[in-house]
Amino acid sequence: MASGKRKKVAALRNVNLVPLLDFIVAVIPVLLLSVSFTEYVILDASLPAFAEETSVVDTQDQEQKKLGLTIAITTDGFVLGGTGGLLSVDGAGTLIKKKNGLYDYELLSTKLLEIKKNYPNEWSIIIVPDSNTRFEEIVQTMDASRERKEIGKDGNMKKTTMFPNVVLGGGVV
């Protein structure tokens, strides 16, 4: 009786783990080759004629003017404008000049946040790039206009959704 128990314990102690190890060693390289460590994301954009003005919940006050926010990406920088001269400075759109030859996405985002505070029910934005604007610059402009991340007073990250409905305009020819 006692020797039988001892045999069982000895058998458990001598489990042959080598085949299992072989299997794992074979599987790991296969998985390592097929696993992608890069994460892809997508950004939505529409053609002008088909863009929905209010695809995100829009409870727009009828009395409030439609903003029709537009960002033109020019060789000098961003020009912000709205329908009917809204946001205009001296009859022209607000210009956000390039900083050291690069587009100032941070300032653009800050300006858009100010606009969002005045027009909380606006969700759409029209981006009108220059013909030579690179795809990367368009994507970064879309990022800057979609949401703003700030560290709040309590130390937590605060996300503000600004203008997620992007319409790509015809371009500055």
């Binding site: 890069t38 994460e39 892809y40 994301v41 997508i42 950004l43 939505d44 954009a45 529409s46 053609l47 004629a49 088909f50 795809f135 994507v139 879309m142 790509l168």
Partner: peptide, 10 residues
Amino acid sequence: YNDFKFVALK
């Protein structure tokens, strides 16, 4: 095809 989804790296 009126809607586009641009692919980017996170």
